Simulated assay, not measured.
Amino acid sequence: MTDKTLLHAEEDSFLQQLLLNSPGSGEMNLFPDQTEDKPQFTIVKPEPGVCVKTKDNKGEKIFVNICKTSQMPSPKDITEEELVQLLDDEVPDYRIPMSIGEPHAELDKSGKGCTAYDVMISDEFMAKIIKSNIFHGFFMSVLYEGLENKFGIMLERNWTQLKNRKCLGNLHEHHIRAKSKPRILEMSQEAAAAVDERQTKSLISELPSEVSSAALREADKTPEEPECVIIQEPKTGYPEFLVAEVKLPKVKSSKTVDLDLGEDRIFLKAHPEMYTLDIYLPYDVIQEESGAQFNRTTNVLTLTLPVKPA
């Protein structure tokens, strides 16, 4: 076996150790209460928010019930100035979590038939778009694009917000996919040592992280924001997976760590009030195939996140 072949074999072995739940690995089931045939969903009844009226390209009346709920995640909390700067980009990197329900037939105030759509966002973001015209305008452009892409319709960009009603018709329940909560596997000291030794050879390039470990906080009152580095493989081009390494020097056991994984977001909390981490990922990941492993020797939590195809 040549040195080059040996190197590739070592890299493959290392990556297999990182991909804890790759298809067919048989390592563990990260989601014991969920199968591929029966994904877990939460049924949410939205609360009325605001109702806007517009028309489609055929001249038919369209009503959009913009609803709210505490069970939807909020987008990243940024200022109006930061949003304006993002809008200068060709493709603004700002995601708004929302749930778009199926259309339902309703009657307008004159008794004529019309179509209504229910769109659900978080309570916090609803308050923001009501307060800020800049966020409201950006949200409406994203909302229009979402409706048109999902249902193959074309909507007029002129719209009116109804003053005397918060919704048209009865709001329908939404089925929201439950948050993925990867079970954290603790590595034995022997396995941790083997992985640490292999990691001394740089196989993966680093991506910039949105985490600031120097965030100001009140001692013993506000949870610390841990240091996090996001790396990718392969190191050039579109990645096949990401690896997030979170340093938790005060954590002794993974049992004290709560971890939620979204499509493009990591939320971590270590008890009692030690660490809180809430960051967005540079790519969408496959939650069901992701893994988490805590190294008790280095106190590093490693998340292995397969990236959705481009």
Rank of each mutant, 00 (worst) to 15 (best):
244 A>W: 04
89 D>T: 12
18 L>E: 03
236 T>M: 09
168 L>E: 08
80 E>M: 08
300 V>Q: 01
286 I>S: 11
135 F>T: 02
241 F>W: 00
165 R>Y: 08
16 Q>L: 11
288 E>Y: 06
62 I>Y: 05
204 I>D: 01
220 D>N: 14
170 N>H: 10
123 D>W: 08
240 E>D: 13
260 D>R: 13
224 E>Q: 14
112 K>L: 11
83 L>M: 09
111 G>A: 00
101 G>T: 14
187 M>Y: 05
95 R>Q: 08
57 N>K: 14
19 L>P: 00
237 G>Y: 07
27 E>F: 06
68 K>M: 12
129 I>V: 13
86 L>C: 07
243 V>S: 00
21 N>I: 06
19 L>E: 08
116 A>K: 02
208 P>K: 07
68 K>N: 10
276 T>V: 14
281 L>K: 08
277 L>G: 03
158 N>Q: 13
101 G>N: 15
77 D>E: 15
132 S>A: 06
133 N>M: 07
223 P>N: 09
34 Q>W: 04
76 K>Q: 15
251 V>Q: 03
111 G>K: 03
309 P>K: 15
243 V>I: 15
211 V>E: 11
161 Q>M: 14
121 I>E: 03
202 S>M: 13
108 D>F: 02
174 H>E: 04
266 I>L: 01
221 K>E: 14
35 T>E: 02
207 L>V: 05
234 P>A: 05
296 R>M: 14
55 K>W: 13
141 S>D: 14
90 E>G: 02
242 L>E: 03
154 M>N: 10
52 V>W: 05
61 K>N: 15
294 F>V: 05
212 S>D: 15
249 P>W: 04
145 E>V: 09
182 P>R: 04
155 L>R: 03
307 V>R: 05
259 L>N: 08
153 I>R: 01
58 K>S: 10
285 V>T: 07
234 P>C: 06
7 L>G: 07
83 L>G: 04
104 H>M: 06
24 G>V: 02
54 T>K: 00
11 E>L: 12
227 E>Q: 12
246 V>E: 02
72 M>W: 04
7 L>W: 11
48 P>F: 01
274 M>A: 08
282 P>C: 06
147 L>G: 01
199 Q>P: 03
252 K>V: 10
232 Q>D: 04
174 H>F: 06
173 E>T: 14
259 L>S: 01
150 K>W: 07
37 D>G: 00
39 P>D: 03
86 L>Y: 04
173 E>V: 12
91 V>D: 10
202 S>N: 12
66 I>C: 03
95 R>T: 11
106 E>Q: 15
88 D>V: 12
119 V>L: 11
107 L>I: 06
202 S>G: 06
167 C>D: 06
116 A>E: 05
15 L>D: 03
12 D>R: 13
267 F>N: 10
217 R>Y: 08
84 V>Y: 09
252 K>L: 11
55 K>Q: 15
267 F>S: 10
209 S>F: 02
178 A>Y: 00
104 H>Y: 14
310 A>R: 15
109 K>I: 12
61 K>F: 13
17 Q>S: 10
2 T>I: 00
205 S>P: 00
296 R>T: 14
283 Y>A: 06
256 T>V: 12
167 C>Q: 12
16 Q>P: 00
231 I>A: 13
202 S>D: 09
173 E>N: 13
235 K>R: 11
136 H>T: 07
203 L>K: 04
220 D>V: 09
154 M>P: 03
